[in-house]
Design a protein around this nucleic acid. Structure first.
Length: 496
RNA sequence: CGGGGCGUAGCGCAGUCUGGCAGCGCGCUUGCUUUGGGAGCAAGAUGUCGGAGGUUCAAAUCCUCUCGCCCCGACCA
């Protein structure tokens, strides 16, 4: 039987969206559920989320954020307080109207109509704001720095596993401050945490910046974001941090008495990152053989595959494999014990391929040869390298190898991204770039700052301003759309 | 909400036009042989043909109603 060229069909080249679905399926991460637009996250996928949670949560706590929990339901009346905010979400709200099921003609039907409908939270600014209003009365009560890990529901028209599902898992942080500057700088602090975790742990390079008015969170004064480039050149918003000014404080009536005895509205922020990060992880690193997981975020770093050809040696080999597991687990990587799995469920190539598709960083095959020569047959997922190595040398060096893999995966992604960012200053070239089938990536182009130009480009090309980068050098130029003098260059791209 | 398509075994599908035993591939189970990058042979198990009603000796197939899902648009972390 001829060996297939790639484990994943179609390839990225052939059909990127289908490739993405296949990687998730073959990698055993998640699948569609009986509920429209909602996914079942399988253990291998959920373990990725658990690691993301662990990393982010620790970083939030370092800056004084505490976890809390608020209800999944929001009374309609509360929702109405923030006019602009709710308008942004109204179209995607799930609404609960009944509280009971009754059997009628053998069928369960909703019964017990609620006097006031409940909204399933699409985000929790309003209900958390309600509590904040109660909790804040003096400047001594501030700041309040809260976060909750939860699920939310946004009834999207079209869904894709991890990238956009009707229900998804995330964290939402909500903070209240005395001053504008403190709130603004906290918004930045959180954005930097997102950027650090995503780059250092998930190995996804990101661009930090602020959103244009059209892309801003409904009701926010400023939305800061991190944007990543996927392997099809599209942008993925990987995390957002909003400076809400006093808008929500006014809506929810969050007031405090200052040191001078004056009554003032507080300044609030909110910020979130979701299971979408897993989608970004997949689309940044994986190849035509499936998932590639950076070691720092991998559920397990190593899988041991006993090669048993002869039953007479089975126990001997297994004992050896178990002792190697212990040896490797005694080593640390990224401040944690290295995690090792033994897969002895079956033999042969199918087992090897399964782990390739699951993206485990290191595979080690151990058979009688390895036992006798005191070697290991090691396969690396990041570069496809496979070779026989001395056991001691490898085990003692494994942390460094994982570290090198982490860096390698990041630098590959960084190179890909940088190779696909183009500075384009001319309107014609800009249009040609985004209309062309075989060109992909971001452009860095001058923009005059008007919503009209932003809208026109979106209508003409389905291209949006991903962000106004912070490290902008205020290049002079002529707006890519209207030709007027502009002070900034911004990133344009098609996006998820 | 507009335009298109599909519901048949766990998954992917054929069969529907022209009514006549419920099928194929993959997967799964068992056994033997294999085994260092996707194994082979043999024997099995698995169905409310989306649902309801109708026509007929006979319905996956024809008719009526209904439910659900997918794709393309508008909307979006």
């Amino acid at each position: 039987m001829a060996k297939k060229k790639n484990a994943i069909s179609p390839t990225r080249e052939e059909n990127y969206p289908e490739w993405y679905q296949e990687v998730i399926k073959e990698g055993d991460l998640a699948e569609n559920s009986p509920v429209r637009g909602c996914m079942v996250i399988k253990p291998w996928g959920y373990a990725l989320w658990e690691n993301i949670v662990k990393k982010l949560d620790a970083r939030f706590k370092e800056v004084g954020v505490e976890n809390a929990y608020f209800p999944i339901f929001i009374p309609l009346e509360l929702m109405q307080k923030e006019a602009e905010h709710i308008e942004g979400f109204a179209k995607e709200c799930a609404v609960v109207t009944h509280h009971r099921l009754t059997k009628k003609d053998g069928k369960l039907v909703p019964d017990g109509k609620l006097a006031e409908p409940l909204i399933v939270r699409p985000t929790s600014e309003t209900i958390i704001g309600e509590s904040f209003a109660k909790w804040v009365s003096s400047y001594r009560d501030l700041p309040i720095l809260l976060n909750q890990w939860c699920n939310i529901v946004r009834w999207e028209m079209r869904t894709r596993l991890f990238l956009r599902t009707s229900e998804f898992l995330w964290q939402e942080g909500h903070t209240v401050h005395q001053t504008r500057d403190e709130a603004f700088s906290f918004t930045e602090t959180i954005l930097n945490i997102y950027a650090d975790v995503v780059e250092e742990e998930l190995a996804i390079p990101v661009i930090r910046g602020k959103k244009s008015p059209m892309e801003r969170f409904p009701g926010a004064v400023e939305t800061m974001c991190i944007e990543a480039m996927m392997q099809d050149g599209k942008a993925l918003q990987a995390g957002t941090s909003h400076f809400l000014g006093q808008n929500f404080a006014k809506g929810s009536n969050i007031k405090f008495q200052s040191q001078e005895g004056k009554e003032e509205f507080a300044w609030t922020t909110s910020w979130g990152a979701s299971t979408r990060l897993i989608g970004g992880l997949i689309m940044t690193h994986s190849d035509d053989d499936g998932l590639i997981i950076p070691p720092k975020i991998a559920p397990k770093q190593v899988v041991l595959l006993p090669i048993i050809k002869d039953e007479a040696n089975e126990q001997k080999i297994l004992d050896h494999v178990y002792s190697i597991k212990k040896e490797i687990e005694s080593k640390e990587f990224n401040n944690n014990k290295i995690s090792v799995e033994i897969d002895n469920k079956e033999q042969g190539g199918i087992r090897v391929w399964r782990w390739i598709k699951k993206g485990i960083p290191i595979r080690i095959e151990i058979g009688i040869k390895e036992l006798e020569n005191d070697t290991l047959f090691v396969g690396r997922r990041d570069n496809g390298e496979k070779k026989s190595v001395k056991r001691d040398e490898f085990v003692n060096n494994i942390s460094n190898i994982l570290d090198e893999m982490q860096k390698n995966i990041f630098s590959n992604a960084l190179k890909y991204r940088n190779d696909n960012i183009f500075e384009i200053d001319e309107n014609e070239e800009f249009y040609e770039f985004f209309k062309s089938e075989d060109k992909k990536g971001f452009t860095l182009s001058p923009w005059c700052g008007s919503i009209e130009c932003e809208k026109k480009i979106q209508e003409d090309l389905s291209v949006t301003i991903r962000c106004v980068p912070f490290n902008d050098k205020t290049d002079r130029g002529k707006c890519i759309c209207c030709g007027k003098e502009s002070t900034t260059k911004v990133f344009f791209a098609k996006s998820y």
